[in-house]
Design a protein around this nucleic acid. Structure first.
Lengths: 138, 138
DNA sequence: ACGGATGTGCAACAATATTGCAATTCAGAT
DNA sequence: ATCTGAATTGCAATATTGTTGCACATCCGT
């Protein structure tokens, strides 16, 4: 059992269960690639679908993972880098979504600046998604 | 019958059907607000749900509307401004998604610049989504 | 090792989306 | 104005994605 996984869970006040360890392990190995729910199901065939939903939801609430939006209409999740807490996510990096293979990767070096929005609007989070063809598809 | 709607359809090589005229009309009147599928169903109670899917898909393929991504997991559609063709969308403006009322509006004055992506990657489209509270909810 | 809080798995259900096919409608040619 | 092939529609069936309630199992501090 990877000790870092145990630590991550503990740091986020999450009880260590086999399910959570497995999901977290998959996300860590994904290495910057956002994973959609059905994909997780395939990778963890013994996992209960509903529990998977709740696990991901919990992870998100505790600041462990963040949802990634792209034009594939499936919710994807990726590990948060640092500094994300229960109270505030800081996912200010861009994501790249490949139109061919459907893969979504985090582009950590591209960060979103702040934008001037119309009066009365408040921005709490910014999503920047670049779409196109990735290196392995081009 | 609004003549501009007829023209828009003709310009995009789309046959004029009552369904398409109605959907297009709703999108035009939405005036920069992206509309989700269930919302369209409510506004056009007589429309067949499946045909609605296909109509929107066709509109998108012909460069008439574009999908808008936000964190509500419902596909939303908004009219393309200009220059969108069958072959290339040019939706380089940002969208604002209100976390309270769920509304998504186009922010035409905020445009996305180009970003430096890793070697081997090609960007064909950029999505910028600002999330927060809109003017009528704040 | 115990016990309360937390998490899991099942069932049922709701919402969203896709495909095939027969019948209808549209728009250009006659 | 009518005909005709191609595009579009509507219905049925089905797949996919996501939610809720509840009984039972598991976790972890004591």
């Amino acid at each position: 059992m990877d000790q870092s996984i145990v630590d991550i869970l503990k740091d986020h006040q999450l009880r260590r269960t086999p399910m959570r360890v497995e999901v977290l392990s998959v996300l860590i190995n994904a290495n910057g690639t956002a994973i959609a729910h059905p994909e997780l199901e395939r990778m963890l065939p013994d996992a209960d679908r509903i529990t998977l939903y709740r696990t991901l939801k919990t992870f998100e609430e505790k600041g462990l993972v963040h949802q990634v939006v792209d034009t594939s209409n499936a919710t994807k999740y990726a590990l948060c880098r640092d500094h994300c807490t229960e109270h505030q996510h800081h996912d200010d990096h861009a994501h790249f979504h490949c139109q061919d293979c459907g893969k979504t990767v985090c582009l950590d070096n591209i960060t979103t600046n702040t934008f001037q929005v119309p009066a009365g609007f408040t921005v709490s989070q910014t999503h920047l998604v670049l779409e196109g063809t990735c290196d392995s598809c081009s």
